[in-house]
Simulated assay, not measured.
Amino acid sequence: MTRPDTAPVRPGEELPLDRLREALRGRVEGHADALTVEQFPGGFSNLTYLVRLGEREYVLRRAPLGPVAAKAHDMPREYRLLERVHPVLPVAPRPVLLVEDTEVLGAPFYLMERRRGTIVRTKLPPEYADLPGAPRQLSEALADTLADLHAVDIDAAGLRDLGKPEGFNGRQVQGWAGRWRRARTDDLPPPTELHDEDVIAWLTANVPPETAHALVHNDFKLDNLMLDPADPSRVVALLDWEMTTVGDPLVDLGLTLTYWTMPEQPGGAPNRVGANAPGFLSREDFLSRYAARRGQDVSGVAWYEVLGHFKLAVIVIQIYARYRAGQTKDPRFAPLGEQAAWLIGEAWRRIRDVGE
Rank of each mutant, 00 (worst) to 15 (best):
A151L: 01
Y58A: 04
G268Y: 15
T118N: 10
D353T: 02
L53A: 11
P208Q: 07
P263E: 15
T261P: 02
G295T: 13
L162P: 02
Q39W: 12
V96F: 15
E113D: 10
K71T: 09
I154A: 00
T2Y: 06
D223S: 11
G247D: 13
E242F: 14
T328W: 03
N218I: 09
R293W: 15
A151C: 01
R136M: 06
P8L: 06
A302W: 11
M226Q: 14
E103R: 14
A302T: 14
W180M: 08
P165T: 09
I319F: 11
Y259Q: 03
P270S: 07
T185S: 01
S139T: 01
D153V: 08
V120M: 03
P232L: 00
P208T: 02
R94P: 12
L250E: 14
G133S: 10
V235H: 01
I319H: 06
F220P: 04
P132M: 01
R3K: 05
E14R: 05
L47V: 03
L20C: 03
V173G: 03
L194W: 02
V68Y: 00
L60Q: 13
R324H: 00
V28T: 08
V104D: 05
V314M: 04
V216F: 13
G254R: 03
A7P: 04
R25L: 13
Q174F: 09
A134K: 14
L222E: 01
P126S: 13
L159T: 02
P135R: 03
V207L: 04
V246E: 05
L159P: 10
R160D: 07
T118V: 15
G279K: 07
A63F: 12
V246M: 05
R80C: 08
R115E: 14
R3W: 04
Y304H: 11
F220H: 09
L255W: 01
